[in-house]
Amino acid sequence: MVTRSFPGRYDSLAQIGEFIRGITDKAGLNNFAAYTVEMAVDEACSNIIEHAYGAEDQGPITCTCKVNTKGLTIILEDRGRPFDPELVSEPDVTGELEDRPSHGLGLFFIRQWMDEVEFEFESGNGNRLTLYKKRTTASTKSTRQK
């Protein structure tokens, strides 16, 4: 198990990405599975800064990673306002250009690309998001080419 804490700022995202790539390498995920994890974590951390904290530099993002034989678990914790995923509607991903929303895609990616997603809020402790990626799914979903 590895835990690291990052300042809740957008310029932490590249460092968080690098940290996650180290973990996905260790977990033996293939290139595409590793990319989906990096993207889910990036989207979650952006949401923490924008929604839970409401601005940059309001608190840390703590990232805990556990690797086992079945897959990879990543826990993201903040000390911000409660985030209720039920309040975010599914984005329209099939309509005409003008009807496409420019927001709400982050959570969509997290839900589509991770095998398990759990949101928890504890008063006084903030939000805890648990992401789980199975290693088996990783090998069946290969990188798609254009």
């Binding site: 595409f32 990616f109 990188t143």
Partner: peptide, 9 residues
Amino acid sequence: GNIHAALDL
């Protein structure tokens, strides 16, 4: 490839 998959999704 990976970015194409994201655009596709």
